[in-house]
Nucleic acid binder design. Structure first.
Lengths: 326, 326
DNA sequence: TATCATATATCAATCGATTAACACACCCAG
DNA sequence: CTGGGTGTGTTAATCGATTGATATATGATA
């Protein structure tokens, strides 16, 4: 494996010069630059990132910790993050906490050991105090953590309001919200809040709410909650599900009970994650601009690394995507 | 940030001894070991993985390159890989090639630069010659690449046979296979092959086959192909889709044409990826043991790193999971 | 008593790149 | 002809851990 030294020798230059070419520092003539690049190509030189990171005291990796990689929402988020990383020259170190606090902390430590450029936390059971003085910026994604450096969210409350308006204007008068309300407080709780408050503004609308435990979010099995809910409110005519995954299972359960969607019951989801919306009937949902949110996380880390100022809290608008279930 | 030296000083020992504790080498008394651990805890020491990797000439990361992170099949695979990595003490460096050969090569180079312990390729457009002498083992996942060190697949041909048998024994006599047959040859093509050959063994069964371009696999939009197919074979009574994502869209398209699943048309998918199978009607599909396959990839890399011998080709059995669409 | 296994220290090189200090050119402009 | 900008070389320290050589000091064992 060729080293910088080998490249220098091959090009008949000093390591200092070659390093300057690699890092675009100081004075370099066009001729030298090209000669270095030719030498690198001839030797098939690949800079040793370990050595660079050691020297620079910082790697070009960003740590990402999510609760569950296979969940469509997180897999889409990871995908968007990967795009943004690529664009900005970062690499992704990915971990899944499975909602376990100890595993989460282990992964935070792994990030420290790897001297990452930053950490994006989409999981919130970490003892926040452990995030202080890590040596790199920590950004939370749709979570609250006091000791993080910044947070990126979507307008969850507004999304809940949009959902309520859609159901009510479609004629629903006996609606329910399902999901959220776990034991840890998170931004997504705002969805239910917005939904309930908006419904409260309409006197003729009855509203119910059901919460799911966090474990459900991990294994994506909401059926017990959904069945309990359908038994308690058999005549529901509008459902706001906290996520598309829940919404799909609601539709499935309704259809099994012989209730037609959207004729008998209208359903609206949250997230707008493919491929869940390709199915029949296509799900009306609240669209989160995940790509932009991912981009924002990366830019915050980039700015923080360069000592520039960055927003502590970034909140994105959500939009209603009307399809076939409302 | 505390270093090994600081720990040594804090514990009143030499760096050599502390290093021996960290790496479990040579003679260490229980007393010393504990004293080192106490000192590490007191200083909140986190070993610098960059320095370790530089010194060892190898990091504890494994590179993973997939075509598309958000595709349910790959997100499940990534999730399973992450579990296996965690169990074996590796970390994941994740990349998405989006099917672009140049991006793929760029990511292979990134893995070289990061001196990964191994690379898992779930994407196959790389010029195979570029995989020679990378300095770490390369394992392909459901791909063919001559220059890789090992490959892990499932019994695609057998899966196709199972699907055919299921449809035929359910009474289908005019069946179709959809998906596969892209421009690059891959193991998954065997599904169609097995399906067609098994159907060929039954004289009274008519069989059709349709292929999808690779781009479809990336954006998960198969509707054009599916509609074309449904027009050409309007009286189809059994469909074998090359993946669950395709199967769902087939069901969706059939329902829109007023054809009932499974009454009029039986459908069977491939992969068995949640949450696609939670929907209604629940999809009958061919189950791939992705977790075991992921595990196999990791063990191959582990064995190769330790100089032990490993299987060049590992093929896993698949099973039929009968649900509601057949 | 001699030997061996255990346990630790000291020292220094090494991994591969970054970077600062300093020196030496050259060329151009004032 | 002199000062300043440009371009490059040399040298050496540094980042933090690994590792081998060598030395020393216990005990226990033969």
């Amino acid at each position: 494996m060729a080293t910088l030294k080998d490249v220098a020798k091959e090009a008949g230059l000093s390591v200092g010069t070659v390093s300057r070419v690699l890092n675009n520092r100081g004075y370099i003539s066009e001729e030298t630059r090209e000669s270095v690049h030719r030498a690198m190509k001839r030797l098939n030189y690949q800079p040793n990132e370990m050595a660079r990171s050691l020297s620079r005291q910082r790697s070009s990796m960003i740590g990402v910790i999510v609760p569950n990689i296979a969940h469509p929402y997180f897999s889409m988020l990871i995908s968007c993050l990967e795009n943004a990383f690529h664009r900005e020259g970062y690499e992704m170190l990915l971990f899944a906490s499975h909602g376990k606090a100890d595993q989460e902390e282990e992964y935070v430590r792994a990030c420290v050991s790897n001297r990452v450029a930053g950490l994006i936390l989409c999981t919130g059971s970490v003892k926040t105090a452990r995030l202080r003085n890590l040596g790199f910026p920590v950004v939370t994604f749709e979570r609250f953590l006091n000791d993080a450096d910044a947070g990126v969210e979507c307008d969850n409350y507004g999304g809940g309001v949009l959902a309520a308006q859609e159901l009510i204007s479609a004629g629903c008068r006996n609606v329910a919200s399902i999901g959220g309300g776990g034991d840890v407080s998170m931004p997504a709780d705002g969805r239910q809040e917005g939904f309930l408050e908006e419904c409260g503004r309409h006197e003729d609308v009855r509203v119910h709410s059901f919460s799911c435990s966090v474990e459900r979010i991990l294994d994506m099995e909401y059926l017990p909650e959904i069945c309990r809910f359908l038994e308690q409110v058999p005549d529901v005519d509008g459902v706001f599900a906290n996520s598309d995954v829940i919404a799909l299972q609601v539709i499935s359960a309704l259809q099994k009970k012989g209730r037609k969607v959207p004729k008998d019951v209208r359903v609206i989801g949250y997230d707008d994650v493919l491929p869940l919306n390709i199915i029949n009937p296509a799900l009306t949902t609240i669209h989160q601009p995940v790509a932009e949110m991912a981009e924002a996380c990366v830019m915050i880390i980039k700015k923080a690394s360069q000592g520039e100022s960055f927003p502590v809290r970034t909140i994105f608008h959500v939009t209603l995507v009307r399809r076939e279930t409302t």
